[in-house]
Write a protein that binds this DNA or RNA. Structure first.
Lengths: 215, 215
DNA sequence: AAGGTAATTATGCGGACGTATAATTTCAGG
DNA sequence: CCTGAAATTATACGTCCGCATAATTACCTT
C-alpha cells in the first residue's frame, strides 16, 4: 500500500508567490522567525517544500520578498486611511496619529514581524535599503502633515524646524506603536490614541481632538 | 596522531554561568537569535558545549537567565546614572531622559537583544513576567520623577494624570530609543537627547535644558 | 602524597534544517 | 486526443541542531 501521489492544481505564478509570502509572514508574526522553516512555510501555503525553490532561488530570497511586501502594505495602509475623511490639515494629521497607533498598524503581529526581520535587515543590503526607504517615506509624510497643519494655523515653520518636529512626533508614534504591540492588554481602548493626539499636540502647540481623528 | 585532550581550568561556578550568559547575549546582539546555538555560545565563552548542560538544564533555561540578567543590568544602569549628579527634581528627570536615549541603553545591540527575545517573551510565562516587571519598574520610576518635577514647579498632579503623562513620556523615550538603535547613523550627536528633552518638556509644560542632563 | 569529587572535555544519537534533483502530473495548443 | 512544457510532488544528501552520556582532568581535602 504505497501512498498515492498527492494531487494538485496549477496556480497563477503570482498567486502562488503571494501565498508563499503570506505564509511566511504569518508564521513569523505568530510563532517567530525560527518557526518559518521551508517546510513549515510550504505546509502553511498548502504546497510541498520543493515548490518554494521553484519560485524563489533561496529561502533568503523569499524572506526578502516577504519583507518588501509587508513594508509596502503597511505604508500604503497608512497613506490610504489618512487620505480618507475630512480634508483639513489638522484633521489629516490627527488621522495619521490615530492610524499609526491603532490596529492593524499597531498590533502584536506587526511588532512581531518587525522584530523577526530586524536582524536580516542589518545583514542584507537590499533589506536595509527597503527598511530605510519605508522609514523615511513615513517620516516625510508625517513631516508634510505637520507642516501643513502648522501652516493652516498661521504658524509656518522652516524645513529644519519641521524635520526636528517630525522626528519628535515620529518618536512618540513609534513608542506608542511599540507599546501597543508589546503590552496590548495594558491600555484601555482608545487610550493610546488619546495619548498620541495629546502628546503630538503638545509638541506642536496644536489642539488635536479625538473627534477629528475618527474616520 | 590523535589530538591531545584540550586542557582547562576550573572556574567559579558563578563566573562560568556569567560567562555563558554574556556569550549568549553577545551572540544574539551581534548576529541574531538564530546564531545563538549551544555550540556557538560555548565557543564564544571559551568552553566546550557539554559544559552548558552542566550549568543549565536546557538551552531555554540559559536564555531565560540571560534575559533576566540583561533586563536587570539595563534597569540598574538607568537608575544608577539618574541618581548621580545634581539632585533637583527637574535635573533628575532630564538625566533620565538623556540616559534613556543614549548609549549604552539606546544602541543597536540593545535593540537587537530586545528583538531577539520578544518571541520567547510571549511564549514563556517566566520571561513574560520578567518583561512586564522591568517595563513597569521603568515607567514607575519615570512617573515618580515626573511627579516630583511638576511638584517642584508648584504644579502637583493627581496620580491618574501622572500615569497618563508617564505613558506619554515613556512613549517618546521608547520611540527615540528605537530609532537610535535602528538607524544610529541618521541622527547627529546629541540630537536625540535634545529632541527627547524638548518633547518631554512640551508634554509636561516644563523647560528641560540640555545642560541639566549632563552628568 | 593520595584519593575523591566535581568540573570539563569528548563522542554519539536522532531529528530537523536548507538545498538539490529526479519523478510525476496538470494543462494549454495543435 | 496528443504532446510538450511547466508546475508540482517526491526523495535524497550533507550539515547542524539540542541533548545525552561516557571519559578524563583539575583541584580540594586530609
Amino acid at each position: 500500500m504505497t501512498a498515492p501521489r498527492r494531487s494538485f492544481r496549477r496556480e497563477n505564478p503570482d498567486a502562488r508567490k503571494d501565498a508563499l509570502i503570506r505564509a511566511a509572514l504569518s508564521l513569523i508574526a505568530r510563532r517567530g522567525p525560527g518557526a518559518a522553516t521551508v517546510r513549515a512555510i510550504a505546509e502553511e501555503a498548502g504546497v510541498t517544500q520543493g515548490l518554494i525553490r521553484h519560485y524563489f532561488t533561496t529561502k533568503e530570497d523569499l524572506l526578502n520578498a516577504a519583507y518588501q511586501f509587508h513594508m509596502q502594505a503597511q505604508t500604503e495602509a497608512i497613506e490610504g486611511l489618512v487620505a480618507l475623511g475630512p480634508a483639513g490639515a489638522r484633521q489629516r494629521l490627527a488621522r495619521m496619529v490615530a492610524t499609526s497607533v491603532s490596529p492593524p498598524v499597531a498590533a502584536p503581529e506587526a511588532l512581531s514581524l518587525w522584530a523577526g526581520f530586524i536582524h536580516m535587515v542589518w545583514r542584507d543590503p537590499a533589506m536595509h535599503a527597503t527598511h530605510e526607504r519605508s522609514y523615511l517615506r513615513y517620516r516625510d509624510l508625517l513631516q508634510a502633515h505637520i507642516a501643513s497643519a502648522l501652516d493652516e494655523a498661521g504658524r509656518a515653520v522652516p524645513p529644519q524646524e519641521a524635520r526636528t518636529l517630525a522626528i519628535a512626533c515620529n518618536a512618540v508614534l513609534d513608542g506608542l506603536w511599540l507599546e501597543a504591540g508589546a503590552l496590548p492588554e495594558a491600555f484601555g481602548k482608545g487610550e493610546l490614541v488619546r495619548i498620541g493626539l495629546r502628546s503630538v499636540g503638545a509638541i506642536l502647540g496644536l489642539e488635536l481632538s479625538s473627534d477629528e481623528a475618527g474616520a
